[in-house]
Design a protein around this nucleic acid. Structure first.
Length: 480
RNA sequence: CGGGGUGUAGCGCAGUUGGCUAGCGUACUUGAUUUGGGAUCAAGGGGUCGAGGGUUCGAGUCCCCCCACCCCGACCA
């Protein structure tokens, strides 16, 4: 029997955008909101976000951060206190100009990010070196008025986490920046099963107001790049704009060194893009809202239903997130439904299994079926979930590595990226070179990896000759 | 903002040169038979045809204006 969803999706094989939208809407993760570019996150999608939140929050607290909350609105003048910051954000900011039926004296910004409003408070909190470091994190929504949008990848309103810290020294702040980047990278690999491509952003691509921006990027099904999280060393740029000063051990007034770092609901988009296939969503067990679904082949056999309920209780008692599907539809319908929603393990239990003392399972990552003995079933399933988690990372890593290709000249660079790949090249580091490429081809630099070996003496993008100490190994791709 | 396209049931769509009670698929409800990969049959409910104005005996259909959305471009940490 043809699978209707697969048939629908097959028609969109050449249209990645349509595939993506279908996966999001048909899995009941999100809907479009009433205002263009806004998104409603449905319970199934939100459960994924909660799992992401819980683990990241745990990591932040382990590294000494505390959660806090800052206002949604702040005066426009805040934005202008750091020159590059306002230039970067002004074009996509949403403003409140009227409230209570009266026009406001000063327009209010709906936060696109909270550096400024937090710095405003930091300036009141910090007086002495004894007040440092300050390490806070905020879970919040932000708004950026983007022209083109797609659920989870780019929406005008989105949920995220933004960390903000102040430190006595540059060294300590830079350490914090890299530490948080590493937390993101590890989280992506261990929980999302996505190999993260990490490195430093170029001058052109860095955060508005930062000294250095580090990023972790993930690769989508169609070979584009998703900036999935960032960590910035802000230097003293904002501290100077907001007059944040402290008295150091020598009694001198000094600016603290600052960092900020963030990740958003775009991580859910990264999950969809990294693992999704033609049957829909594929979720890694550690993040899946439902890890195991139990599907009784028939509801007519009371013994079978009782057995399934018992198994459901047993697995739940072991801390596994189980769902017993007793809905009144055919077994085949349920198979497809839960595959579409990405549930890692499906137990298909019928009269035949009951007689033989086994259960049939189907794993979502490989779509293969096998049987498990009833003895020690809980342990076997836990082991199976672990194996799926590991296999998904390996599969994604192999796929990603196969699509990062070394080239050394402009034509190969363009052709290779257009064929759905990242390229790894030696690049001269000139902003104009990068801008020129972007204007011509929409290809942008993604990051300069920490691993810089294999540098050549010629820029692959503009052909400029380079000395031994010039140029950077850089990844280029098309970005979402 | 430039170019192109679409608005008709929850979703996807048809509706001819203007004409009868506005249809089809799917989903939904009820009943029966089914259930190891999206079941079958029967009955049923659901519509300001995007909004406003105009032409006409008569507008889903023609004209004007507005609105919304989609695609390409531009824009985008």
């Amino acid at each position: 029997m043809e699978n209707k969803f697969v048939q629908d999706i097959a028609d969109f094989e050449t249209n990645y955008a349509q595939w993506y939208t279908d996966v999001v809407t048909k899995t009941e993760m999100a809907d479009y909101g009433p205002v263009k570019g806004t998104m409603v996150i449905r319970p199934y999608g939100y459960a994924i976000w909660e799992n992401i939140q819980n683990e990241l929050d745990r990591q932040f607290k382990l590294t000494g951060h505390q959660n806090a909350y800052f206002p949604l609105l702040f005066p426009y003048s805040f934005l202008t206190k750091e020159k590059e910051h306002v230039e970067g954000f002004a074009p996509e900011v949403a403003l409140v100009t009227e409230a209570g039926g009266e026009e406001l004296g000063e327009k209010l910004v709906i936060r696109p990010t909270s550096e400024t409003v937090i710095c405003n408070m930091f300036s009141k909190w910090v007086k002495s070196y004894r007040d440092l470091p300050v390490k806070v994190n905020q879970w919040a929504n932000v708004m950026r008025w983007e022209k083109t949008t797609r659920p989870f990848l780019r929406t005008s309103e989105f949920l995220w986490q933004e960390g903000h810290t102040l430190h006595e020294t540059e060294e300590e702040a830079r350490q914090e920046t890299l530490q948080m980047l590493e937390i993101y990278r590890k989280f992506a690999e261990d929980f999302l099963a996505i190999p993260a491509i990490v490195g430093k952003k170029t001058e052109k691509e860095k955060f508005a107001g930062a000294v250095d921006t580090y990023t972790f990027e993930t690769m989508t099904r169609d070979g584009k790049s998703l900036q999935s999280g960032t960590s910035h060393y802000l230097g003293t740029n904002f501290a100077q704009g907001f007059n944040i000063k402290f008295q150091n051990k020598n009694g001198e007034m000094t600016y603290p060194h600052q960092t900020s770092w963030g990740s958003s609901t775009r991580l859910i988009g990264a999950l969809i893009c990294a693992h999704g296939d033609q049957r829909g969503l594929v979720l890694p067990p550690k993040i899946a809202p439902i890890q195991v679904v139990i599907v009784p082949i028939t509801l007519k056999n009371d013994d079978l239903v009782a057995f399934c309920k018992d198994l459901n209780d047993k697995l739940t008692a072991k801390g596994i997130r189980v769902n017993l599907d007793l809905s009144d539809t055919s077994a085949g319908f349920k198979f497809n439904k839960w595959e579409l929603k990405g549930v890692p393990v499906r137990l298909e239990i019928g009269n035949r299994d009951l007689e033989q003392g086994i259960v049939t399972y189907s794993r979502r990552d490989t779509c293969q079926k096998a049987t498990l003995n009833l003895n020690n079933i809980e342990q076997n399933i836990i082991a199976l979930l672990d194996e799926i988690q590991a296999n998904m990372l390996e599969t994604a890593r192999a796929k990603t590595n196969a699509h990062i290709i070394d080239v050394d000249n402009r034509q190969d660079l363009i052709n290779t990226v257009n064929a759905g790949n990242f390229v790894r090249v030696t690049w001269c580091g000139d902003r104009s070179c990068e801008e020129n490429l972007k204007n011509e081809t929409a290809i942008t630099s993604r990051c300069m990896p920490f691993e810089q070996s294999g540098k050549k003496n010629k820029c692959a993008c503009c052909g400029k000759e380079l000395k031994d100490d010039e140029g950077f190994i850089t990844l280029f791709a098309k970005a979402y």
